[in-house]
Design a protein around this nucleic acid. Sequence first.
DNA 1: GATTGCGGTGAAATCGAATGCATCACGTGG
DNA 2: CCACGTGATGCATTCGATTTCACCGCAATC
Lengths: 337, 337
Amino acid sequence: MVTLKDVAAAAGVSPATASRALSGPTSVATVGRERVLRAAAQLGYRVNPVARALRSGRSGHLGLVLPDLANPFFASIAKGVQARARELGRNVLVADTEEDPLIELDVVTQLREQVDGVILCSPRMPAEHLRTEVGAGRGVLVNRELDGVPSVSVDNADGVRQALEHLRALGHRTVAYAGGPASSWSDARRRDAFGAVDGLTVVDLGPGRPVAARGVAAADLALGSSATAVVAYNDLVAMGVLEQLRTRGVRVPEQMSVIGFDDVPAAALVNPPLTTVALPLRAVGRRAVDLMVAAEAAIQPGAAPAGPTPPAREQLGVELVVRGSTAHASPAARGRE
Amino acid sequence: MVTLKDVAAAAGVSPATASRALSGPTSVATVGRERVLRAAAQLGYRVNPVARALRSGRSGHLGLVLPDLANPFFASIAKGVQARARELGRNVLVADTEEDPLIELDVVTQLREQVDGVILCSPRMPAEHLRTEVGAGRGVLVNRELDGVPSVSVDNADGVRQALEHLRALGHRTVAYAGGPASSWSDARRRDAFGAVDGLTVVDLGPGRPVAARGVAAADLALGSSATAVVAYNDLVAMGVLEQLRTRGVRVPEQMSVIGFDDVPAAALVNPPLTTVALPLRAVGRRAVDLMVAAEAAIQPGAAPAGPTPPAREQLGVELVVRGSTAHASPAARGRE
DNA sequence: GATTGCGGTGAAATCGAATGCATCACGTGG
DNA sequence: CCACGTGATGCATTCGATTTCACCGCAATC
């Protein structure tokens, strides 16, 4: 392994000068710098990131903690994080918590020491832990907001608004909501938004796990109500709804409209293709990295007194993608009621 | 930050002894060890992984390189890797190559210095690069085999065999194969296996990208042939096939049977539910970690001469999951021919 | 009784890069 | 002509844990 010392020797300078020539912002004579750079290239020198990390206290690694890698929702965020980190020359340490708040806490404390900062997706842990674990510029929240911690999330309320206006424009007057986990911050935001739209009656089908089976159950609940449309917590639930409606012989969208959330790839592949609120997940991941890097930078320099810039709290726009699972509330549908 | 020296001082021993008591396999007096452990616990000492890594040369990190995090196939493998690594107290550095061999090479060289070993999923890079990059016990291959490098893959041939025997038992005599990328090692294995089954005529629909759109095209090709069943490279392609068959008014499975590969979650949600060859992807990920750790261990100790154990090359079993997209080759279907 | 043998220990070197401090050469202004 | 500033450089230290090497007792052995 070729070290800085080797390069220095080859260039005929001291290791200190070589270090400065290669990475330091300090002044180095142009001629010497050239020699060092040439020597480094010739010997195939690559800085040892571990040594650098020990001395400087920063590893250049980012931590990414999420509930489930196999969930396309989080996989998309991870992909965005990954891509942006690569652009910035940083590596990503990923940890899957298997939706378990205990594992989450465990993983975060363990990860915190190995990385410069950690991006927490949809954290389940209580606010006070969250604050102590990722408090001082060491963390970014995704899909959750908390005073004093930078975060990036999607505009859940606007997503609900778009979905409901779409349905209202199609003549629907009663809409059922198949919600997500009670502990979900996003679900709470969406639930709030349902109350804010005039001219529509909302039937709450209660909370539930964000899986297809929950959608199956929700479909029957919806059929038992006067709703002519169902909005689901996410696409998986919506697909469960579609499946059960088919089983029950209820035609979608003729007799019942269905809207999902997330726009996972499979949403376009089911039958009928699912109308859904598309969330900019990749972008969420990318922004989270940017906020993280910015937060790091803010810690380092002259330590501007009293925190001049409050932690950023970003909200990204969402977009309703209309496909085949929504249509006019037809007389036939009304007749079923 | 409390360091080893602090612990040593509190316990009244030298840092050397404290180190040995905490992590070294060397003998330490029981009484002294106890004192050190107690002091460490009391002070809330946590070893600095970076310092340890610098001295010992191993970071405890594993690298995971895969073509696309958002692809459920790789996400499942990643999940397995992640879970096993966590059990072993190791962290995972994930890198997404975006299906690009150049990025792949770049990422691997960059990652290699930060991790103890790297797990390469479905690597696209040429064999010689592969060997130099992950040669001496520094890498494990997934979904690709290469002399001298440990690997774990699935039994592609048996998957094809199971699928074809299923179809033959249902009375099918001509089967079309919608293959994957020409550069895919798995696809080559499967193609080989198609030739090995007697009593069936195979129609090769050619190679293609592993996306739904490719399935759409393949469906029309299949309809133009005398095939009564289509086996697709993966579930995504199979879903494309299903979609196009529906568009063309061909009923599945009555008029055409369809089989996928992978058994991604969405496979059970489409209509009809997809019969598919389930691959034990989580297990693949887990085994890859085990092989990696074993390979590391093999490097370290007495350096057994002439490499006593050849690199492990594991193959995990697959299982055909029969759902609703396959049925008897009916007279109606034959009539269509 | 002298000599190995060995468990246990600490001082100090080591890993590789970054950096505070001192130094030196060269100019420029007084 | 001297004092002082400035740019360039090297020495030595630092980061925190591991590990080599030497050493010290004490017990077993000849």
